[in-house]
């Protein structure tokens, strides 16, 4: 009975244990300064997490990421929904998006720093740019796939087109929008770290690269582990939120991805 309850947790635990084992073996084999064994590096994790300055940096990074993602949500969802319901909007935005999509947003960081300086504004703008496109794209897909007869049913009740976008298209497209949000969360984390590599001041990225320059390699690896764990925790929390928001969705509409 106990075994059956913990059985689903077994494969992920094996995977993590496997990675640690390989890491340990590799570092023992090569004996490089730049590759400390996990038994040494992971000891730095509690040290970092109890250091007020490091904690402040981590929270500061997450704050910028949250602001960037929220701004992107506010902008991208209405645009995507509108594109899905208006041929004009789709024809207008689609070529723009396909030009902007392949541009690596973090590569724009030096230019943006010329405009906005090295502070919060630049980093938030880069995170915003990094997560906007998948959000628009998924909102657009979701909006385009809304069953016409849902809109007709609402129209017959006397609902006007602008209200239909907010009250029918938005909830109907929500499962697909949340797929975009999940991608945005991961991309947001990546862009956040990258932006702090380029504009050093505070933050997780800054911690990593400062330690790297000073040759404190166990801290570097501990930080990488912490970033990975952050991504994992954010994803688990987001999946909880998603289950709560779109538990009503038909199985065909629900999204089968990754870990859960």
């Amino acid at each position: 009975m106990v075994l059956r309850r913990f059985l689903p947790a077994l494969p992920p635990l094996l995977a993590f244990a496997g990675i640690l084992a390989i890491w340990e073996l590799l570092s023992l084999y090569f004996g490089l300064d730049g590759l400390p064994p996990p038994s040494v590096a992971l000891r730095q994790v509690p040290v970092i997490l109890t250091d007020p300055q490091s904690l402040f940096d981590i929270v500061d990074s997450l704050r910028r990421m949250a602001i960037g993602i929220v701004l992107a949500l506010v902008f991208a969802i209405p645009v995507g929904l509108w594109m899905g319901r208006s041929r004009f909007a789709a024809a207008f935005f689609n070529p723009l998006l396909s030009v902007i999509y392949p541009v690596p947003k973090a590569a724009l960081m030096p230019i943006i720093m010329l405009w906005l300086g090295v502070g919060d504004a630049s980093k938030i703008l880069v995170i915003f740019l990094g997560v906007t496109l998948p959000l628009i794209y998924h909102s657009y897909q979701g909006s385009r796939a809304v069953e016409e007869k849902l809109l007709w049913s609402a129209a017959a009740m006397g609902m006007q087109p602008p209200a239909r976008l907010a009250r029918i298209v938005l909830p109907a497209a929500l499962p697909e929008i949340l797929v975009g949000c999940r991608t945005a969360l991961v991309l947001g984390l990546i862009t956040m770290v990258t932006s702090e590599m380029i504009a050093r001041q505070t933050g997780i990225g800054n911690l990593v690269f400062q330690s790297l320059e000073m040759g404190i390699y166990d801290t570097v690896y501990a930080m990488i582990v912490i970033i990975g764990a952050l991504g994992f925790i954010l994803d688990v929390l987001f999946e909880r939120l998603r289950g709560w928001l779109v538990g009503w969705a038909e199985p065909a509409q629900s999204i089968i991805v990754g870990s859960t």
Binding site: L150, W152, A155, A156, A172
Partner: peptide, 20 residues
């Protein structure tokens, strides 16, 4: 000239609001 509450549709696809 357009849809109105004097004419109530019922569709083969049901068209229920799945989030309600």
């Amino acid at each position: 000239e357009g849809p109105g509450p004097d004419r109530g549709p019922v569709f083969q696809e049901f068209a229920l609001f799945p989030w309600k």
